[in-house]
């Protein structure tokens, strides 16, 4: 799969084609920082002064580079496709190599950051359990009722919430057997076939 760039992007990135390779690497670092923490206008100002161009050009260059990185990480394109995609932008052989290295090094990080942006369901974090025997309550004395009290920790978007739940021995055994079945299902030939074919 190849990345498509429209003219605006090509324009922004064209500024980067005439610079030194070391400057390009600086720009790569700045765009990674942009992805992680957001824009840093002071850096743009100082870079613009050093290179003798306007701050806006610098910003466009950084954003163009960032777009290149995020799109390629999002689509998980392989080396060959990445190289083919940047061929049309007018970078020299050396620069293309540097960009490829940058992409391969930082791909996982960028994907992790993109992951944080996507929708998340409350997911399981931990389960604590304990075994109790209820001896009496206000409405009935002389009881011997076994119960299992559990605390379920779930996490959503960084916040953990806990819930106290209860069950009796029969339901505990039932719960365990049903969930074990669920776990076995993913190892079944059918699921394996689907997983293999969707890659």
């Amino acid at each position: 799969m190849l990345l498509m760039f429209d003219d605006k992007h090509k324009n922004h990135l064209s500024f980067l084609t005439d610079i030194d390779i070391s400057v390009l690497q600086e720009f790569c670092k700045i765009s990674i920082e942009f992805i992680k923490k957001g824009a840093n206008t002071k850096v743009y100002q100082s870079a613009a002064q050093k290179l003798g161009v306007s701050a806006e050009t610098v910003q466009n260059g950084v954003e163009g580079l960032m777009y290149l990185l995020t799109e390629s990480s999002k689509l998980m394109i392989n080396e060959i496709d990445f190289q083919d995609s940047i061929l049309t932008l007018g970078f020299s052989e050396e620069m293309r190599q540097a960009l490829l290295e940058l992409y391969l090094d930082r791909r996982k990080e960028v994907r992790a950051i993109l992951n944080q942006m996507s929708m998340e369901l409350p997911h399981y974090h931990n389960l604590e359990w304990r075994f109790d025997v209820e001896l009496a309550s206000r409405s009935l004395r002389h009881q011997v009722t076994p119960t299992v009290t559990m605390k379920l920790h779930t996490e959503e978007n960084g916040t953990t919430s806990t819930q106290v739940l209860q069950t009796d021995p029969t339901n505990l055994v039932h719960l365990t057997s049903v969930l074990e079945e669920a776990l076995q299902e993913i190892k079944s030939p059918y699921c394996r076939r689907i997983v293999r074919n969707i890659k």
Partner: peptide, 29 residues
């Protein structure tokens, strides 16, 4: 009488579903 009183929610059953998460609007593959 033993059913009168408070207790934490009592688990009686469990349902599960297995999905294969392919892509979302920020990320593919």
């Amino acid at each position: 009488l033993s059913s009168v009183g408070t207790s934490p929610p009592h688990i009686v059953d469990v349902n599960w579903r297995l999905d294969y998460y392919i892509k979302n609007n920020h990320m593919e593959r």
